[in-house]
Design a binder for these strands. Sequence first.
DNA 1: TGTCAATATACGCGATCGCGTATCAAGGCA
DNA 2: TGCCTTGATACGCGATCGCGTATATTGACA
Lengths: 83, 83
Amino acid sequence: MDTMARTARQIGTTIRRYRRQKGLTQRSLGNLMHARQATVSKLESGEPGTQLGVLVDALSALDLELVVRPRTKISTEQIEELF
Amino acid sequence: MDTMARTARQIGTTIRRYRRQKGLTQRSLGNLMHARQATVSKLESGEPGTQLGVLVDALSALDLELVVRPRTKISTEQIEELF
DNA sequence: TGTCAATATACGCGATCGCGTATCAAGGCA
DNA sequence: TGCCTTGATACGCGATCGCGTATATTGACA
């Protein structure tokens, strides 16, 4: 249920998963968070230039939250398998 | 140990806590993640315009990771008490 | 109180953001 | 095959990023 993420791409992919799980399109999520569909697209694709505010707004609109924690010992390769 | 964050400010505060815990200054963390001390300062202060890449680099430098999960039922006020 | 390290803030710059608007490619389904 | 929805991408715009550099301001400790 919870999803670990260490890169912008992984964060984006996670957002996308939760969005689809809620039956939302990029456009409808964009409406909820007052952003354009193109902005949601960039966030989900993991553009590192995406602003933190966009991520926070998306999390809020999807009723998600972040947890920051020390890295677990799972390897980077194993993480990629999760995505 | 783990820290929940729902706003840019909370994310920044969390980063700051982990940085200090490791005995790093903004400048030394900036060196680790190839960013300026001023950029670290903005990240920690919770500027929503901060780029996702900066956050990711900081997490990496501090050996931290994110978890994305559905929001717990704790109220916003209770969350603020944690910060 | 004074000094020094740490952090916040500023200037000019090139790059890139999100915006509004719009188009285009790819899929799903009739 | 041909729609129609979805998501990726583009243009011009104003705003803001992080950069290098530099200077306040703050804070801790002698």
